[in-house]
């Protein structure tokens, strides 16, 4: 596997001003690392990768890496990516988006991208909170947890993103955490290879906002929690409902083959040209 210094040399932009904007202890960098290792393991050409994001802490990921990178507006990474992919089907399009970006303001685009089954890999960095704006509750903040817009506890119920995208028609759904970097890397690898709309939900931590207001301890404590609650799909299959309470099932949760959008459109073109 590629070493850290090789990774930095090969994939980071050398003319970009560092340091990055993320807080000490943030999980985003770790997830980005897993993604880059997956790309490296697949030996993809950097010119063929388009890395698209929305707004928020996660939205800042593309600027640091040496691909074709597109930092769009809040919630809209997927429709930008859809237009880009349809115009250039040969590109590998990877979208990085947060829980608020993907499931709140961009929720409608998310479910329709799933339904359309366009060949895009979406990595959802789920840290249960709006980090960049300072810690407001998001569509994945657990019921009862605190944020700076629900200091007495969240009275809304959270989305289960993996279940949501599966119901909406995604043809590949994976989940991991920012603790399980190797598992995550392998799932992202499979997601990129998958033909169709793939979603990888990554449970991660925001020690600065969510961790602080909910007294979850340090970044290390929060990573330890991820280690504790994550249960691999195969192991979970042998556990009963009581044992699974409070656990997060990880792994490739669902994978199926259905006609992909761009390929179907190419057939439409062929048919239309045939009719002429």
């Amino acid at each position: 596997m590629i070493s850290n210094s090789q990774l930095v040399n090969k994939y980071f932009r050398h003319n970009k001003k560092f340091p990055h904007i993320w807080c000490p202890g943030c999980g985003i960098g770790t997830i980005l690392g897993s993604m880059l290792r997956a790309v490296d393991a697949l030996a993809l050409d950097k010119n063929e990768i388009a890395f698209v994001s929305g707004i928020g802490c996660t939205g800042r990921a593309p600027v640091y890496v040496d691909f074709n990178t597109l930092h769009t507006t809040h919630g809209r990474a997927l429709p930008f990516a859809t237009g880009l992919k349809l115009s250039r089907p040969e590109l590998k399009v990877i979208v990085a988006t947060g829980d608020g970006d993907a499931a709140a303001i961009g929720g409608n685009h998310l479910i329709h991208a799933c339904r359309r089954n366009i060949d895009i890999t979406t990595i959802i960095f789920n840290n249960y909170i709006y980090g960049m704006t300072g810690g407001q509750y998001s569509p994945t903040t657990p019921h009862g947890d605190k944020a700076y817009t629900c200091k007495l506890g969240n009275i809304e119920r959270p989305f289960n993103i993996a279940a949501l995208v599966e119901a909406a028609g995604a043809t590949f759904v994976g989940r991991s955490t920012s603790y399980h970097t190797l598992q995550l890397q392998n799932i992202i690898k499979k997601a990129i290879t998958h033909k169709g709309f793939s979603v990888v939900e990554v449970i991660t931590h925001c020690p600065t906002t969510y961790g602080r207001i909910n007294k979850k301890g340090s970044a290390v404590d929060m990573l330890s929690w991820q280690k504790e609650v994550a249960v691999d799909k195969t192991r979970a299959a042998k556990m009963d409902a009581k044992e699974l309470e409070g656990k997060i099932i990880t792994g490739v949760l669902m994978e199926k083959e259905l006609p992909e959008f761009c390929e179907q459109y190419d057939k439409i073109i062929a048919e239309a040209q045939n009719q002429q």
């Binding site: 698209v52 597109l70 769009t72 507006t73 809209r76 997927l78 429709p79 930008f80 990516a81 859809t82 237009g83 880009l84 992919k85 349809l86 115009s87 250039r88 590109l91 409608n108 685009h109 329709h112 459109y265």
Partner: peptide, 23 residues
């Protein structure tokens, strides 16, 4: 290529993406 998007926000986003792709 033609695509019917889920709303007008998505529509303009998609044509921006396509224009970046060279269309």
């Amino acid at each position: 290529k033609f695509i019917q998007m889920e709303d007008e926000i998505g529509s303009i986003a998609a044509i921006i993406g396509a224009s970046i792709g060279g269309c």
